[in-house]
Design a protein around this nucleic acid. Structure first.
Lengths: 134, 134, 134, 134
DNA sequence: GTGGTCTAGACCACT
DNA sequence: GTGGTCTAGACCACA
């Protein structure tokens, strides 16, 4: 399901990270699922394996994935993670920045809230389907 | 009112742009107001004048400021600009990306909507000050 | 009739030049008419006399005005001037540049031609109302 | 195809912008095409890379190009941008100013319309190449 | 290799 | 005094 747009101005590794995170939130990737190997995904997406590797490493750092040496990379259960208030603060600041941008594009708060409400991303509805990994 | 954080990974000029846009939305900067001169702000913030100049120039490109050679840089009225649906679409996508990030930090949609609602940014409340800056 | 917009990003002297040229084409200023003195116009428009002086000098250089020492500055008859093909070439190039800009704003040639046709500027309809100046 | 005239009073970056825009309208540069790298073009034109970079950046701001870090700069499809009436208004004013200039060079409207009609720039003939560059 | 950011400093145009 | 253009060169991020 993971895919990237080679014509986007967003870096490949960022697109990949978001794409994987999105698949997890949408349930396409379930906790415990094994991701394709670095080489496999690299050849699938016609990308440099270094880029895939970087992506997996970063997602490990964010507690989204977990790599077991010699076995592969797996999706971690979201509930295993405890909320990192520092990062939440950063996120809030980024939302605030976007709201500023919105103001100068004549977009109202109501509209933004609509976008978020209608978004296909499903937050808070994630049951603990505890993974057997780790 | 404008300030920047030299330890942020965000480029100075982006921080400045946001800071100025925020001040405008909050009414701290009113249409027609003159911004500090490039050299003045540069010495205030201990930065190179080129960086300030770049910021002003970019905001001019976004129809936020207007610059008059030999005189200075001024805040433009927001209201005579019309909504750019292309940019709005981009903005929406950025909101969507942030919502995905939020999901992995265990932040719910309700919480995000709260952040936006409570934000001090005032959208849609920009009256036409009719300053006719061109 | 001459006026300038202090909030425009165009330099004052350019605005003035255009404004005077426009008044001449529209017949508001007739060949032989005396323009206000530099000081007079400067105080009228609340501008630096140097700027007015510069404007008059430049318009003299373009054969639009003529200054008689001790008497004042007068509008020259357009027909006294012979067409300067070098400048016409430059002008054509500037039109071409604008057409390029137009293309990237999704403006068609038909639309541009409409603008020009409908413009209040009246070209070619200037009879020789020979001035007695010079 | 891009070239600049170092003796013109027009800034290099403006000349470059126009030259690139012209090439796009004439189909010499097609949507999706890669432009020379900043350093490459800089050495070709014997200019500082910063100046090229500025040009590309500005054209990106105008939705003409798109730039992907580490890869290069590409021509964007014109068609998915929507017309910006604010800028169109400004353009119209610039045409009007040129018509005034024309009057004082004894150029008639008919002549101007001829120039525009005969111009090699092809407006409105841009088919959607559907290159989906974002 | 690609582009992006920032500094430093020169020179020009406009008020 | 104001901003604008250009060069030169350092350092960083992405593929």
């Amino acid at each position: 399901m993971v895919s990237i747009n080679k014509n986007s101005s967003k870096p490949y590794y960022e697109q990949l990270m978001l794409s994987i995170k999105e698949d997890i939130l949408q349930g396409i990737l379930q906790p415990g699922d094994r991701l394709p190997s670095v080489r496999e995904l690299a050849s699938q997406l016609m990308m440099n394996p270094n880029t895939i590797s970087k992506t997996y490493k970063l997602l490990e750092g964010e507690q989204v994935l977990i790599t077991v040496k010699g076995k592969g990379t797996y999706v971690k259960a979201l509930t295993d993670v405890q909320r990192d208030e520092y990062k939440v603060g950063k996120l809030k600041a980024r939302f605030n920045d976007l709201v500023i941008e919105a103001g100068h594009l004549l977009v109202t708060k109501a509209e933004i809230i609509d976008w978020i409400t209608e978004s296909e991303i499903n937050l808070g509805g994630l049951e603990n389907e505890n993974s057997s990994i780790e």
